[in-house]
Design a protein around this nucleic acid. Structure first.
Lengths: 337, 337
DNA sequence: CTGAAAGCGCTAACAG
DNA sequence: CTGTTAGCGCTTTCAG
């Protein structure tokens, strides 16, 4: 069976308490007994039982990470950032997949709370103002940090990119490159999608360009949807000469549709994505995109959460909005300006 | 504070035991009291404390997943498969990143054991025969399933692809397409890398083709390494006309090197990868690759582990080797045969 | 410096 | 059907 402190104590003829203290480097233990305990522990291959320890200390040294899709390379990168920051602190990460489903997200969070994780990092899939969930979390005093998306009606720690700026950067870039009929394949109706759309509109407005309603089509997250959305755009009488896509997977799908239609990228239609996923420079047409510091998002969220956990009391919410950066590549490289 | 069973019991004037049984739908509780308990629990927003429960039941309903790199889309896909299978069973996944480092892997596994996970799924980074780790796991009777790689000297449940077949499929394909000077950018010195190399050799041998030593260069996992390795190959007097790359990221790097050298893919050099990562058909040159059923790997490993956990005693090791499938795309589409 | 007492929140086993 | 007793492995508190 597994060795317990009791076993070590028994072997050495000391009390369990002595063992406990020795193992945790308490000061009020003689150097000699500490050595004896440590030696014995090593020989028996003792591993502390974290379950028991957690029950009394009320610390599990686990943090929950709730994301909508681990296959999306943005979230994978965030997860990596979070892990990198927390692993050295002795924390482990429990990952939950909400599959972009608000109810499942809620279930998973409840489960994580039942497991008494020390904190949570959440890329929320909530769309309507179901803020009870977050209120109940606050009531329980479980620290949490939101990332990427701002659920409606929630006021909490947040780390993400300036989404409106993404839309503006991408769209202005297309304008500079000489595009005049600029479409947008928009994302889902959550903060990221809405704000990028808003940025797109701002940029067009500033440049005095029109944005006809039919130039805005729904693309969601995936590349299949981007493909379909682009086909739709290509059938318009006034075909767009530039498209800003919600994210890189959508843009990849859009490019495929354009090429299949016998058109050229960027000469006939220029394309800009967002996210700068790590293979975006290796796509059929190297993709112009807007970098949103995915890894850093994970790292910053982890740091924030770690602070909350250490503080051991609710801290005033901190909002960290990161500045996006345009990464110009071939998909928007046209004769234009 | 958080509500405990004690609170419900006190409110209702019953014992904690009654509450406990009612909440877990034990049979020997009257319908009436069960209702009362459930109602009260709901009103108070009671959540069972899994820590306490785990301490006595010795079941945590957590499984550990140890992988070398969560950014590599193969492992992300595996993780997704594992999660999909386990989430409905009420299990949660603790993910640990070994960063391809054997010692860190060992630490992480020890930590997971200390957390008393019910089981483990491991893509091991062990290179030398340090099998003590796995022996100690067996001694502790923690069920575990290995995936993707077979560490030397370990005999345990396994799910992975037939790596030798991958090498044979890819290389034979290049031969069929008319390549005669076929190089290999090999992976790391673990089972996957070694076996794919072996398959490459087998195929060449069967076809009576030579495999000069300088045609085999080290590429490891990443695309930067594939890029460098390819540059090296391009400088040989007898330039290869076909390259089988350890995996798709490496192949992407190789293609980049070829194009930058002013050569064409596949006409000057044909390229085949392995893994069929989800963006491989959208690369600059759509990549011929060998599919290894990543998602299925995760799902099957999860099923296997779930069985072991349910069985509650050591089961004879089961080895599941999946059949790879060639996915022919443009990067190998040449005039050849 | 060491240890005895008490308890974290829950459940298994048995008694009523 | 309900409750009592005991204890999971550990730590906190406080007395020697």
């Amino acid at each position: 069976m597994t060795v317990r402190m009791k076993d070590i104590a028994h072997d050495l003829g000391v009390s369990v308490m002595t063992v406990s203290k020795a193992l945790r480097n308490h000061t009020d233990i003689s150097e000699q007994t500490r050595e004896r305990v440590l030696a014995r522990a090593r020989k028996l291959g003792y591993q502390p039982n974290w379950i028991a320890r957690s029950l009394v200390t009320r610390r599990t040294h686990m943090v929950g990470l709730v994301i909508p899709d681990m296959m999306h390379s943005f979230f994978a990168e965030v997860a990596k950032g979070v892990t990198q920051k927390f692993q050295p602190l002795g924390y482990q990460i429990v990952i939950s997949n909400s599959e972009e489903n608000a109810e499942r997200e809620e279930e998973q969070i409840q489960l994580l709370l039942a497991r008494a994780v020390d904190g949570l990092i959440i890329a929320s899939a909530q769309t309507s103002g179901r803020s009870e969930l977050f209120q109940s979390m606050r009531a329980r005093k479980v620290p949490y940090v939101l990332i990427d998306r701002v659920p409606p009606g929630v006021d909490a720690h947040f780390v993400g990119v300036k989404n409106e700026a993404i839309g503006e950067l991408a769209t202005s870039h297309l304008i500079e490159r000489g595009c005049r009929r600029i479409a947008h394949i928009r994302g889902p109706a959550i903060s990221t999608g809405n704000l990028r759309l808003q940025g797109y509109r701002n940029a067009l407005h500033k440049a005095g360009l029109a944005s006809p309603a039919e130039y805005i089509v729904r693309g969601d997250h995936g590349d299949e949807r981007g493909y379909v959305a682009m086909q739709q755009l290509l059938q318009l009488k006034k075909r767009p000469d530039g498209v800003f896509c919600f994210n890189d997977p959508v843009a990849a799908g859009a490019i495929q549709a354009i090429l299949e239609a016998g058109l050229r990228v960027p000469d006939d239609v220029a394309v800009v994505g967002a996210g700068n996923v790590h293979y975006s420079d290796q796509l059929r047409v190297p993709l112009t995109t807007v970098d949103q510091s995915s890894l850093l998002t994970g790292e910053k969220a982890a740091e924030m959460l770690a602070q909350c956990i250490l503080a051991d009391k609710p801290l005033a919410p901190v909002y960290l909005f990161m500045e996006p950066k345009l990464v110009a590549r071939q998909s928007s490289l046209r004769n234009g300006a």
